[in-house]
Every structure is written in C-alpha cells, then in structure tokens.
C-alpha cells in the first residue's frame, strides 16, 4: 500500500492547504492525504443508495426477528441486522448527524428495556407459582411467549447494545476520564479539552465533532 497515496507525507508539512476545520484532525496523522482544499462532503452515490436500501434491510431485519419461529433466524440475527441498518445510515449521512437523530435515550431504552422485558417474561410464571420461563403459565399461547422473548427481549438487547457500541467506538476513548461523575455532556467536555490541552485524543474528538457535516 505504500504506492497509493501520492501526497503521503509525514505529519506537519501539509497543514497549509487544508480546510480549517480539518487541519487539527490531520496534523497528528502519518498518512493524511493532500486534499485539493475542498472539504469532504457526503457522497452523492452512497446517500441515495442507502435511502433506497435501508428501508428494505430494516424490514428484512424485522422479518427475521418476527418470523424466527417458522424459518431460520430469530431475535439475535434480526437485532443485528436492524443495528446494521443504523450503521448504514450513519456511514451515509455522517455519524454525528445520526447520533443526534437517534438519541441516547432510544439506545439505552432498547438495551435496558430488552433486558427487563426478558426478565419480566421469565419471572411472570414464577409469580404464578411456576418455574422461570414456564411459558404455559403465561396468559398467551406458548408460541407467542417464545416469540415475545425473542422480539421484546433478545432483539431489543442486541440491537440496542450494537448501536451503542457503534456510537461509543465512533466517539473513542475519553482520555480525560471526565465522562464519569460530573454529569455534563461528553461533547462539551471534549470541546473544552480541545481548547485548553494539547492531547492528541482531545484534538481528534473535537475536530471530528466540528468537521463531520
């Protein structure tokens, strides 16, 4: 791969011809390319294609989840596909834009709600004097008991956690550790950090936040 990047130069000598919002982002990188002074815009090929593909993929994820009883599949696979649709949208329209569109509340509600739903469905028969997950004590047919565990439990947990991991990894490591305890939004912390300290991670986060759209 050493021959692919014509402008492949080390670190700091190419910081003059970059758009200002990307300059910090590029300065710490060994492999930054020399761009022609134009900021990156989201691809005109990827965006319309994702607009067409995403609804079908999401519907197929729902099908895999809901039809797990009659064909291969189930909550885990369907949940993973639904999370993959969110990844697809994030790659097409920018991760930060998707992060704003899909609030943290939704992701956490999916993961926590899924775990609670699974535990609730399991414990309801216990309350009625049976065993954990004894489906015939549920007020619905056994088949729908299984389906509800798959749909409300496993699919929700898997899709929520995978989406969460995606946004988490896109954010990266909070080098200051101030994500804990102070209750303030993490993005603001990163911006403050970029202003006052010169640590590479903080610079990267701030530049990514600013230069995403």
């Amino acid at each position: 791969m050493s021959d692919v990047r014509p402008g492949d130069e080390t670190a700091d000598d190419d910081a003059d011809d970059v758009p200002p919002h990307r300059a910090r982002d590029r300065s710490g990188r060994l492999d930054s390319e020399r761009r022609q002074g134009t900021p990156y815009t989201e691809s005109q090929v990827i965006m319309p294609t994702v607009k067409i593909v995403a609804p079908f993929a999401f519907t197929y994820g729902l099908f895999i989840t809901f039809h797990g009883a009659g064909s291969p599949g189930g909550g885990f696979q369907g949940g993973a596909i639904m999370a993959a649709v969110v990844f697809m949208i994030a790659f097409a329209f920018g991760i930060e834009a998707t992060r704003e569109w899909l609030a943290n509340t939704v992701v956490v509600a999916l993961a926590v709600g899924g775990a609670l739903a699974f535990a609730g469905i399991g414990l309801l028969p216990v309350a009625r004097g049976g065993a954990f997950l004894q489906y015939d004590l549920l007020p619905i047919p056994v088949k729908y008991g299984l389906e509800s565990v798959e749909v409300f439990g496993i699919a929700a947990i898997v899709s929520g956690v995978l989406m969460g991991l995606f946004f988490l990894l896109a954010n990266g490591f909070d080098s200051d550790g101030s994500g804990f305890g102070d209750g303030g939004p993490v993005d603001e912390d990163a911006d403050e950090l970029a202003g006052e300290s010169g640590s590479p991670e903080a610079d990267r986060t701030a530049a990514a936040d600013g230069g995403e759209r």
């Binding site: 990188r29 492999d31 930054s32 761009r35 691809s43 294609t49 790659f91 097409a92």
Partner: peptide, 13 residues
C-alpha cells in the same frame, strides 16, 4: 461502503 469511506483519509471523515 464502510471500507470505501474508511479509505478516505483513513477514517477521518
């Protein structure tokens, strides 16, 4: 699309 977008500035975008 993930890999092809990654090749632009090695994931910088």
């Amino acid at each position: 699309i993930a890999i092809s977008k990654f090749t632009v500035e090695r994931g910088g975008v």
